[in-house]
Computed example of a mutant assay.
Amino acid sequence: MKGFYTGILALVLAGGCQAKEPPTQVVYRFDDHRYLELKGWDCEGELWYTDTKRGIHTEPASQFYRIFTKRFIHPSEKYIAITNWGADGFIVSKDYGQTWSDALYSPSGNEPNGDNHGPYEDVLSFTVINDQGFLQTKHRLYMSSRPFDDPRVLPGGSGIHYELPDGVKGDITPQFPGPAWGLDYITKEALVNDTAKYHTNYQDLPDKVPEVKGYTGWDHMRCDMDAGRK
């Protein structure tokens, strides 16, 4: 009987009763050759990045991605940063979208209550320009470092010696350099009490989101909840 039921199942599958393939839709366009696609039901699923000029097609998120619904402006090409519905972290690429890694908020508390990031309802916009990311909230500006690593903490570098106002001295070494550029988001308020401020790529950071001119991409992500059901 086992073989009989196996045969029936095969006939059912062959007859077209398989689960329907999840829909794929473009949810963001950076420009005329770069875009993001979401594959999944109810605007949640796999996230794919495509650059037709460079021949890049990669998968920043393999499942559970939900679109970021606030203002999103992204003219930057080398450094690509994407956040999600909760804006609780970032998926970033530093090589035009060929490879991806996670970026988080800095370890020190950025919010007055000690949290690392504000609630989603406080988020106003996310802008990625000149290979830097800027998440603006009602009360804070979170940003990644300037787009290079301090050569003193790269392999073979001299390291960074520092002395705190209370007299405590320390060294940041190439063996323990801290986060690489673009892989953490911090506020200038929190940077005051963070040794990252001694890195050259955390110095002279702006006080506001840089102005974006001539941007032709979308200013929000878009997603049809009914995709695949029509």
Rank of each mutant, 00 (worst) to 15 (best):
L11H: 07
V12P: 00
V12G: 00
V12M: 13
V12I: 15
V12T: 03
L13M: 13
A14K: 12
G15Q: 06
G16K: 07
G16H: 06
Q18H: 11
A19W: 09
E21I: 13
P23W: 07
P23K: 09
T24N: 04
Q25F: 06
V27K: 02
V27N: 03
Y28S: 05
Y28R: 04
R29V: 11
F30W: 13
D31Y: 11
D32L: 09
H33D: 13
R34V: 11
R34G: 08
Y35D: 01
L36H: 04
L36R: 03
L38Y: 08
K39S: 15
K39F: 02
G40D: 15
G40H: 14
W41P: 05
W41D: 13
D42K: 14
D42M: 12
C43S: 14
E44Q: 14
E44M: 09
E46I: 13
L47Y: 14
Y49D: 01
T50V: 13
T52E: 12
G55P: 08
G55E: 09
I56D: 05
I56W: 06
I56A: 06
H57C: 04
E59S: 08
P60N: 06
P60K: 05
A61G: 03
A61F: 14
Q63M: 15
Q63Y: 15
Y65F: 15
R66T: 12
R66E: 15
I67H: 07
F68N: 07
T69A: 07
K70Q: 15
I73F: 03
S76C: 09
S76Y: 11
K78W: 02
K78P: 00
Y79R: 11
Y79L: 14
I80K: 01
I80W: 04
A81T: 10
I82R: 02
N84F: 05
W85M: 04
W85G: 01
W85E: 08
G86S: 09
G86L: 03
G86Y: 01
G86V: 00
A87V: 00
A87F: 00
A87E: 02
I91N: 00
V92G: 00
S93N: 06
Y96T: 04
G97W: 05
Q98H: 11
Q98T: 09
Q98Y: 07
T99G: 03
T99D: 04
W100E: 08
W100I: 10
S101D: 11
D102A: 13
A103L: 12
A103G: 14
L104T: 12
L104P: 00
Y105P: 02
Y105G: 01
S106P: 08
P107N: 13
P107K: 12
G109L: 10
G109T: 09
N110S: 15
N110Q: 15
P112C: 10
N113R: 14
N113G: 12
D115Y: 12
H117C: 07
H117D: 03
H117M: 04
H117N: 12
G118R: 05
P119K: 09
Y120A: 15
Y120C: 03
Y120W: 07
D122G: 03
D122R: 05
